[in-house]
Structure formats: structure tokens, C-alpha cells
């Protein structure tokens, strides 16, 4: 009898703060797929903000916490492609340091959530209901850094009642880009506006995606445009946990 895959869930700072329901959904999806899931208490951020700002010193300092906390697990699963991608950069970040070896090994064991479910665990469908027209947003990190394109779509198609809509310009950035969106707000805003137009024209009433940063950006933009389109993390829909109000949506009583 094969032992259960031991998964350490790296929640990520944005989900921890803005979207707890996505993390609960991720835990459930992993458990339903037969994993033993641990959520280590000592976790914060992957270090990406500093890394992408050229501040390698602070990036390393923060990333060391991730290394230490997650080194014991067989797999590290992240409900965010961009943070999983950051851990894949650890070998570069810790090159020629005492942590070099750990970094290489951790990077190889780290996966984005939907990629892990489909490619590693062989999950082909989920048991969930979501009777809505939903568009999937390919975050750049998922698409180009982690090779995630068909996996989330395959899982979404198995959701009862869900009608999957494709964006016409699916492979173009939404304008989030981490600190980019606050450093160059007008450029980012222009990109976000093009994306929300595309989303609106797709006919979807719900937008899902694998990356919290992009989702906050698009949800914030849609809210600014008074759009009725709801935004959720993909894990919530796949786990059937959609009781929470959508991102940037008003409280439901």
C-alpha cells in the first residue's frame, strides 16, 4: 500500500491576508486527492518582492525562512504559480551559499496547486458544483514559468454546471506584475483595462485564476468599473467552497 504523499502547503502572503477561503479550498483539494497536508505555522512570504526589486540580500533573508520551514516535506504545494515560480528561483538566489543544495532540492519538489493535482497526482476531475460561465485567467507565471495551461482547464471542465469561457487574448499579462503595478500605475492600469474588457467580452460572469496577485488586480479593476463579474481563486471553485463573497465583493448577509 503506497504511503500518502506528504504535502507542506505554502499558503502565500496574499492568500493568507486577502483570501483565506482559497487556502481552505486548497487543503481540501489535496486531502481529497489522498495527501497528508501540513500547514506550517512559521510561514510568511516567498521573498519575491525583494528578489524582483533587485534586493537580493533581503530576498535571501526572507527566503531562508521558506527553506527552513519547508525542507522536511516530500512536496511543497503552492496555490499561486508566481510564488511557486519564486521557489524555483531559489537555486539562483542561494547559489554559492551554504543553502545551495537545499535550494535545488526544494525547487524540484515545489509545485503549483493545479499542476500538482493533475501532473503529479494524476487527478482528472473534481467533485464540485458551480453553475456559472467562468473564464480562466492564465497568469504569466503559471503559463510561462510553471507550464500550467491545460491542467486547470481540465479540472474546471469537470465541475458540474460550469461553462468554461476562453479569453481572446488569454496569454497577455493583466498588468499586475508585483511591485510593477504600484511603481508604474498608469501603464499597469492600461493593461488591466484591456484585460477587463477581454473578460467582459468573453461572456463570463465569473473569473477564476491561480494567482492571487492577478486576481486582486483584476477584481479591483472590475470593482472600479462597477462590473458585476465575480472573481474567485480557482481552488474555491474546484473544491466547491464558494460560500465566501467574491474577491472585492460586498458582504453577504
Amino acid at each position: 500500500m503506497p504511503t500518502k504523499p506528504e504535502v507542506g502547503l505554502f499558503v502565500t502572503c496574499l492568500i493568507d491576508f486577502f483570501r483565506p477561503s482559497a487556502a481552505f479550498a486548497a487543503v481540501q483539494l489535496l486531502q481529497d486527492a489522498g495527501c497528508s497536508v501540513t500547514v506550517p505555522k512559521a510561514q510568511t512570504c516567498c521573498g519575491q518582492p525583494a528578489f524582483n526589486s533587485g534586493d537580493s540580500g533581503d530576498a535571501r533573508a526572507v527566503a531562508r525562512t521558506v527553506l527552513k520551514t519547508f525542507a522536511p516535506f516530500q512536496y511543497v504545494v503552492v496555490p499561486s504559480a508566481s510564488c511557486a515560480g519564486m521557489i524555483r528561483h531559489f537555486p539562483e538566489l542561494f547559489k554559492d551559499t551554504e543553502h545551495a543544495e537545499t535550494a535545488v532540492s526544494l525547487a524540484a519538489r515545489t509545485h503549483e496547486l493545479t499542476g500538482f493535482l493533475v501532473d503529479v497526482l494524476g487527478v482528472t476531475s473534481v467533485r464540485a458544483d458551480f453553475p456559472h460561465a467562468a473564464a480562466y485567467h492564465d497568469s504569466c507565471s503559471a503559463l510561462r514559468e510553471m507550464g500550467i495551461r491545460d491542467q486547470p482547464r481540465q479540472l474546471l471542465r469537470s465541475v458540474t454546471g460550469l461553462q468554461l469561457c476562453e479569453l481572446s487574448d488569454a496569454e497577455t499579462c493583466c498588468g499586475f506584475g508585483g511591485t510593477f503595478c504600484v511603481k508604474y500605475p498608469e501603464i499597469s492600469g492600461k493593461m488591466a483595462a484591456a484585460k477587463t474588457r477581454d473578460i467582459t467580452e468573453s461572456g463570463a460572469n465569473t473569473l477564476v485564476g491561480p494567482d492571487m496577485g492577478c486576481l486582486l488586480n483584476m477584481a479591483g479593476r472590475l470593482s472600479r468599473e462597477n462590473s458585476h463579474i465575480q472573481v474567485r481563486h480557482i481552488a474555491e471553485v474546484l473544491a466547491g467552497q464558494t460560500a465566501a463573497p467574491p474577491i472585492a465583493g460586498p458582504e453577504t448577509e
Binding site: V11, I15, D16, F17, F18, R19, P20, S21, A23, F24, K41, Q43, C181, V182, K183, P185, E186, S188, G189, A192, L216, N217, A219, G220, R221, S223, R224, A244, P245, P246, I247, A248, G249, P250, E251
Partner: peptide
């Protein structure tokens, strides 16, 4: 409302989009 349209020190964000507000305490 679920989001903020203005927040001190977050002008880079809110000039272009609303800031979503967490629905409850942190996941942790």
C-alpha cells in the same frame, strides 16, 4: 463594500483600481 477606492499610502494601487478588503481574519 468589500473594497476601498482610496487608502493613504496606497495611491499607486487605488489610482487605477479598488483595493479588495479581506473578508475576515487571516488564514493563519
Amino acid at each position: 463594500r468589500g473594497s476601498l477606492s482610496k487608502l493613504p499610502l496606497a495611491g499607486g494601487w487605488t489610482s487605477e483600481r479598488d483595493l479588495p478588503v479581506p473578508p475576515g481574519p487571516t488564514f493563519s
